[in-house]
Amino acid sequence: MSGMLGMVNYWAVIVLMMVGFYTLIARGNLVKKLIGLNIFQTAVIMMYVSFGKITGATAPILIQSGDHGGGGAEHVVYSNPIPHVLMLTAIVVGVATLSVGLSLVVRINEAYGTVDEDEINRKDNGL
């Protein structure tokens, strides 16, 4: 039981990932596909953040021993900052991907007059 509850954030990751991936595959609307892609990527971000978190640990900011009236710095447990920092990069990449994707959708809408995959295929094959 504690295993299941302790892993709750990973279950959320799996659910989110599948929701995103399913949306990406099953939806015909190009904007909805991008939303699915973004949910998928966000699930990965959540996964990385969970990697770095240690229960009861504090943010990785160096605490000077004098700050807390004699509380020793050597007893402080920090979370691992590296996965969190990596995800800053991944967030930037995700934003860039989304914006490139959305601007492509805008152009597609201008060229075809629709953002629906089936309709686009129909128009292309009708040429």
């Binding site: 152009r107 060229a111 292309d124």
Partner: peptide
């Protein structure tokens, strides 16, 4: 104009690939 849909398709599949790598 099919270049746009081709790029879009590449973007979706490429991003899924990159996310798998991550």
């Amino acid at each position: 104009r099919r270049a746009l849909t081709a790029a879009y398709q590449y973007l979706i599949m490429g991003s899924v690939g990159a996310t798998f790598i991550v």
